[in-house]
Amino acid sequence: MTDSQQALERLREGNRRFVNHLRSAEVLISQLRRGELVKGQKPFAIVLGCSDSRVPAEIVFDQGLGDLFVIRVAGNIVAPSQIGSVEFAAEALGPRLVVVMGHTLCSAIDATLEAIEKPSAPRSPNLLSIVDRIRPSIEGLVHTELAEDRQRLMQAAVRANVRASVSHLKHGSRILERMVLEDGLRVVGAEYSLETGEVDFFDL
C-alpha cells in the first residue's frame, strides 16, 4: 500500500511533468492495462476537485487509468454524496491520501461572492444549493479589507473554501475521522493555478 507521503510525492512529481509538458511512459502505456483493471482497482490517491473543464485531475497530475479515484463537483464542495464517495474509496480501495483541490478563477466561488453581494438577484434553486455550501466559509471575507481588491478576495475565498471542505471531510464523517486517527489517512488541501498549471498543496 502506498502511504500518504509517497502518494503526495507521486502527485507532485506528476504535476511537475505536466507543467513542463512531459508525460510519464507509464501513463502513456496505461491503456494497455485496461484489461487488468477489469478485475479491480487500487488507486493510490483520492481527489475531490472542481468540475471545471480546465482542471482534470488525471491530466494535471499526469496519471493513468486506475491511478486516481476522482470526485468532481462544482466548487469542490462537500455534500453527503461526496463524503460517501470518499468513505467508499478509502475503506474499500485503500488509498491513504485525500486531496481537496480548488483552483484559481473558480466560477462557483465567483457566483457565491455575487450572491453575497447581490442577494436579491434571481438564481436557480439548484445553483443555490452549491452557493449555500460555499457561502459560510467565505462570507466573512467580504466584510474585510479584501473586499477592496477583487483578485485578493477571490484568492482568499478559493483557499477558505478548500479548507472548509478539508475540515468537513475530517470531522463530518465518523468513518473518515477514525481512519485519520488510526489508519494513516491524510486529508490535505490544494490549489491548481490555471495560469501556470502548478498545484500548490497547503496545510499539510
Results as ranks from 00 to 15, higher is better:
I71F: 04
I71E: 04
R72D: 10
R72V: 11
V73Q: 13
G75K: 11
G75A: 09
N76I: 01
N76A: 05
N76W: 02
P80W: 02
P80K: 12
P80Y: 00
P80I: 11
P80C: 06
S81D: 13
S81M: 06
Q82S: 12
Q82G: 06
I83H: 07
I83L: 14
I83V: 15
I83G: 06
S85G: 12
V86Q: 12
E87D: 12
E87N: 13
F88W: 07
A90K: 08
A90P: 09
A92V: 13
A92S: 14
L93H: 08
P95G: 09
L97C: 00
L97Q: 08
V98Q: 06
V98N: 05
V98G: 05
V99C: 05
V99K: 07
V100H: 05
M101R: 12
T104R: 06
T104D: 07
T104V: 01
T104M: 03
L105G: 03
L105M: 09
C106K: 08
S107G: 15
S107N: 14
A108I: 04
A108H: 02
A108F: 02
A108G: 02
A108R: 10
I109P: 04
I109Y: 02
I109A: 04
I109W: 01
A111D: 13
T112S: 15
T112Q: 04
T112H: 02
T112E: 05
L113H: 07
L113R: 09
L113K: 04
L113M: 13
E114S: 14
A115H: 13
A115R: 14
A115K: 08
A115S: 15
I116E: 00
K118E: 14
K118D: 12
K118N: 15
P119Q: 05
P119E: 06
S120C: 03
S120D: 15
S120R: 10
S120Q: 14
A121Y: 10
A121W: 08
A121F: 14
A121M: 14
P122F: 02
S124Y: 05
P125Y: 03
P125C: 11
S129K: 12
I130K: 00
V131K: 11
D132I: 00
D132Y: 01
D132T: 04
D132N: 15
D132Q: 13
R135M: 07
P136V: 10
S137C: 11
S137D: 13
S137P: 09
I138P: 01
I138M: 02
E139Q: 15
G140F: 03
G140I: 03
G140D: 09
V142T: 15
H143Q: 14
H143A: 14
H143T: 14
T144G: 12
L146F: 06
A147M: 07
E148N: 13
D149F: 00
D149V: 10
D149K: 11
D149G: 00
D149A: 00
D149P: 07
